[in-house]
Simulated scan of single mutants.
Amino acid sequence: MTPSRPRLTWTRAVAYALAASGLVVLALMAVFASRWMTSFGPVQDFVRAYPGEYELPSFVKTGIPAWASWTHFLNAFFLVLVIRSGLRVRGEKVAGGLWSSKRVKKRRMSLALWAHIAIDVLWLVNGVVFVVLLFATGHWARIVPTSWEVFPNALSALIQYVSLDWPTHNGWVNYNALQQLSYFAVTFLAAPVAAVTGFRLSAFWPKGNERLTRAFPLEWAKALHFPTMLFFVAFVVVHVGLVFATGALRNLNHMYAGQDAVSWTGFWIFALSLVAMVSGWFLVKDRVIAPIAKLFGDVRLRK
């Protein structure tokens, strides 16, 4: 019998409401503090000296190539499925199905965990393709800092964002320094951490290698894996919010239609991608996963 979920009591509801109210108050205080800071001459001089972005190397071409648009969509699609399957694994009390390897009989796991790992692999393959094309085309300098000026410019961009006097945004030509550092962190820091900790938590970790196991304890992976997922969720929320708040039609055209124009083309392509993501969210179920998992091992569903 599946355990019942804890009911939302009045005490818990009030606690959530107070927490949300506290976050709103803190956000407003940050805005007022930032606007107060920008009223001082030295801060204004700093923002003028470092407007939020620096000049890219001459070899970087203007625009968003088609491969970047496709890998961007696939990254978002697989990330949604990774989060969905990860939440299933975390919240599953009794496995709805079991998968076992035909080659290594002792290797078995819940069907939900198998789906999480399989989707992770697809997400990582797409990421590798993105990184290879990134460096093969010179597009890497768009998200990898090439000057120490990235740091004062990132601070300037942060001050401008928080004060609601936002920096000039033109992702078709150049990202501001705060965007660049964020994209760099997601691609080259958070994604590898998610992959390595996920591998450590999986049944594919070489348990017989005691030296490797001692070097990377299971507790470390558990402590890092879920917070990394929360970081991705927070990044997506802020990223999508700023896309819509800083010129939605133009930004969506940049990423989805490959054109620097204000039209509805990119929006409708984005809308179709949302349909795919929402559909994928609801299709991550054992009975949908089972036929695919059977191609790679033995599957037994609970009745």
Rank of each mutant, 00 (worst) to 15 (best):
W10M: 05
A15C: 04
Y16P: 07
G22K: 07
G22P: 12
L23E: 05
M29H: 07
M29Q: 15
A30L: 13
A33I: 10
S39L: 07
R48F: 13
G52M: 03
E55Q: 14
I64Y: 10
W70L: 11
T71I: 04
F78V: 04
L81K: 00
V94P: 05
V94K: 05
L98H: 08
V104E: 07
K105D: 14
M109T: 04
L111V: 07
W123L: 15
F130K: 01
V132W: 04
F135D: 01
F135V: 02
A136D: 07
A141Q: 05
A154S: 01
N174Y: 00
L178C: 01
L181K: 00
F184R: 00
V186I: 06
L189M: 06
A195W: 15
V196I: 12
G198T: 04
P206E: 07
R211M: 10
L212G: 12
H225D: 05
F232Q: 06
F235H: 05
V243A: 01
A245W: 05
A245R: 00
N251C: 03
H254Y: 11
G258E: 07
A276C: 06
M277A: 15
V278L: 09
G280F: 03
F282Q: 00
V284M: 02
I289Y: 04
I289M: 11
L295E: 04
G297I: 02
V299L: 00
L301K: 00
